[in-house]
Amino acid sequence: MDCLYLSADHRGLGLGPLFVAALREEARTLGLSEIQWQTPVWNEGAIRFYDRLGAASKEKLRYFLPVGESP
């Protein structure tokens, strides 16, 4: 999954858990063993939501390499 985002006026209505349940069912149908996604460490609301779902986090390093002009 690339990104899960609900606008503020749609949060707290139970849509997130419904979406994730449907996503899990689709993953099972496709024979997948897991769903992966990421969120920035500062996104505390998302982290609480994912924790409530029972999702486990894995530490990950993200690298960036500028491609500016060569010397």
Rank of each mutant, 00 (worst) to 15 (best):
Leu65Gly: 02
Tyr5Glu: 12
Gly54Glu: 05
Leu6Thr: 10
Pro71Thr: 02
Leu32Asp: 09
Asp51Thr: 15
Ala27Asp: 03
Thr29Cys: 10
Ala55Met: 06
Gln38Trp: 11
Ser33Met: 12
Gly54Lys: 01
Gly54Asp: 06
His10Asn: 14
Ile47Val: 04
Ala8Arg: 14
Glu69Val: 03
Gly16Val: 00
Glu26Arg: 13
Pro40Arg: 13
Gly16Tyr: 08
Gly12Asn: 05
Asp51Ser: 12
Leu13Asp: 01
Leu15Pro: 00
Glu26His: 12
Glu59Met: 09
Arg11Lys: 14
Leu18Ser: 08
Met1Phe: 12
Gly14Ala: 01
Glu59Gly: 11
Tyr63Arg: 06
Pro17Asn: 01
Leu18Trp: 02
Ser7Pro: 09
Ala8Glu: 15
Glu34Cys: 14
Tyr63Leu: 09
Trp42Ser: 11
Thr39Leu: 06
Arg52Pro: 00
Glu44Gln: 07
Gly16Ser: 05
Glu26Ile: 09
Tyr63Phe: 15
Pro17Glu: 05
Leu6Asp: 10
Gly16Gln: 02
Arg62Glu: 14
Arg48Ile: 08
Tyr50Thr: 08
Phe64His: 12
Ser7Tyr: 12
Ser57His: 12
Thr39Gly: 06
Gln38Asn: 15
Ala22Asp: 00
Gly31Ile: 08
Glu44Gly: 06
Ala27Thr: 04
Leu30Asp: 07
Pro17His: 04
Ser33Leu: 12
Gln38Gly: 15
Phe49Asn: 05
Arg62Val: 14
Pro66Cys: 07
Thr39Arg: 06
Phe49Ser: 06
Glu44Pro: 00
Trp42Phe: 15
Leu53Asp: 04
Gly68Leu: 01
Thr29Phe: 09
Leu23Ala: 10
Ala55Gly: 02
Ile35Glu: 06
Gly12Met: 06
Leu65Glu: 11
Ser33His: 15
Pro71Leu: 04
Ala46Met: 03
Arg28Phe: 09
Ala46Asp: 05
Gly31Val: 07
Arg52Gly: 05
Glu34Val: 13
Asp51Tyr: 00
Arg24Val: 07
Ile47Glu: 00
Gln38Pro: 02
Trp37Met: 15
Gly68Asn: 02
Arg24Met: 11
Ala21His: 03
Pro71Asn: 04
Trp42Glu: 11
Pro17Met: 04
Gly31Asn: 07
Pro66Thr: 05
Leu18Ile: 08
